[in-house]
Amino acid sequence: MKLNILIWHIHGAYLTAITQTEHNWYLPVRPDRAEGYIGRGEGSTLPDYVREVPADRVKDLDLDLIIYQTPHNYTTDKVEILSETQQQLPGIYLEHNTPEPHPTHTLHPASGDTGVQLVHVTQYNRLMWDNGQAQAEVIEHSVAIDPTVQYTGQRAEGICAINNMQHRGRIAGYDLFETLRKRVPLTTVGMDAGAIGGLGEIHYRDLHRTVANYRFLFSPMRYSSLPLAVIEAMTIGMPIVALATTELPTVIENGIHGFVSNDPDVLADRMQYLIDHPDEALRMGANAQQLARTRFGIGRFVQDWNHLFSRLTASV
């Protein structure tokens, strides 16, 4: 049965993936395009059954389920655009991020709400947050990208795919990027990347064809959930070099899918190895792609979400 689901546009790549579940999805929009209210977005590749609805008309919708993704969604947006009846519908708080300011002593916004299902995108996230009384489970990431895109690695250079890396500072590993690109060929792509000598922002529909030409993806993220850029790169058959932090040590096996380490000297050495050995990069990229298909495949992801949707709406 197709459900009517309201979700805010917070993370474009994740929205593309979760809407592969073939339900009737509604995105609230406002003229000012405030956070969460951009609708489908410019040049959208979302399925046709993902529809925009003016925020002031959301109360008229016959909804089955609400998905919150930010504290603002959960506390403010809910009251502003949902009717009292809609606010009582089954709800999911989808948590994309690791807790701040502290990785173990931060209470989740939904921690006291036993009526909302809390979903984390990694086991690491669930472990770090204080989930309180909330029902918390994990549905691991997936990505929905053009299946015809395939890694070539023909460019002997690594690439990062991080938005606003310089503004996010040490959390995003900007200092490590600056240090390591002095030692090995390395660039970056994403919002405001041009300001630090990178490629700038490339639309999601074209991003992976560009990334596929580089020898490896480097993820310098010190503290985050499992970056979607890593899964996207693995999905197209690209080897990964990354810090051995957050969920990544459970994903990347050294010499099999790429390399992980917390030693910048080791990372620089492994990057140079991939640059000097393109055949090894291809081998590790193929292994990474196989892992992406099994652990992070869109089929598994859709099944997990549909199972949760069915369970939450069974009594509605």
Rank of each mutant, 00 (worst) to 15 (best):
R205Q: 09
N213C: 01
A242Q: 05
M271H: 12
A193Q: 15
D206T: 03
L186I: 07
I236D: 14
Q272P: 07
S261Q: 10
R205L: 06
A233C: 04
S225A: 12
P220R: 00
T188I: 05
G197E: 15
S219C: 07
R270Y: 01
L186N: 12
A244S: 13
P220V: 00
V260D: 12
T210G: 02
R215G: 06
S224L: 01
A195D: 11
D206C: 00
G190L: 03
S261N: 15
A242L: 13
A233F: 02
T235N: 11
E201T: 10
M234A: 04
V241L: 08
A242P: 03
A242E: 05
V260F: 03
A229D: 08
G255D: 12
H257R: 09
I256L: 11
I196G: 10
T188K: 12
R222K: 03
H203S: 11
I231K: 07
H203Q: 10
S219A: 07
M191E: 15
L186G: 11
L267G: 10
D206I: 02
V230Y: 00
E253W: 03
I256D: 12
D265H: 14
L217H: 02
D263I: 07
R270V: 08
L243G: 06
L274K: 14
F259D: 11
L243Q: 09
E253R: 02
M271Q: 15
R270E: 09
S224C: 04
S261I: 01
E247M: 06
Y223S: 04
T187K: 05
M191W: 13
G255T: 03
F216A: 04
D265W: 14
L267W: 07
H203N: 09
V266K: 11
A212H: 02
P249K: 00
G258I: 00
N262K: 05
Y223M: 01
G190S: 11
G200P: 06
E247C: 09
I202R: 03
R205M: 02
S224Y: 05
A195P: 10
P227E: 00
G198V: 02
L248W: 11
N262P: 13
Y223I: 00
V266C: 10
T246S: 14
T210Q: 04
P227K: 11
D206M: 02
P264H: 14
P249R: 02
V230K: 00
A229G: 09
T245L: 11
H208Y: 05
H257D: 13
R205S: 03
T188D: 14
R215D: 00
I252F: 15
M234E: 09
A233N: 05
F216M: 02
D192I: 02
A242H: 01
E232K: 05
S219D: 11
I256P: 06
H257C: 15
A233K: 04
D192T: 15
R215H: 02
T210L: 04
A233E: 05
N262I: 11
G258N: 08
P249Q: 07
D265M: 14
N254W: 12
P227W: 07
Y273C: 02
L199H: 09
Y214Q: 14
N213W: 00
T187V: 15
F259Q: 07
G197K: 15
T246V: 08
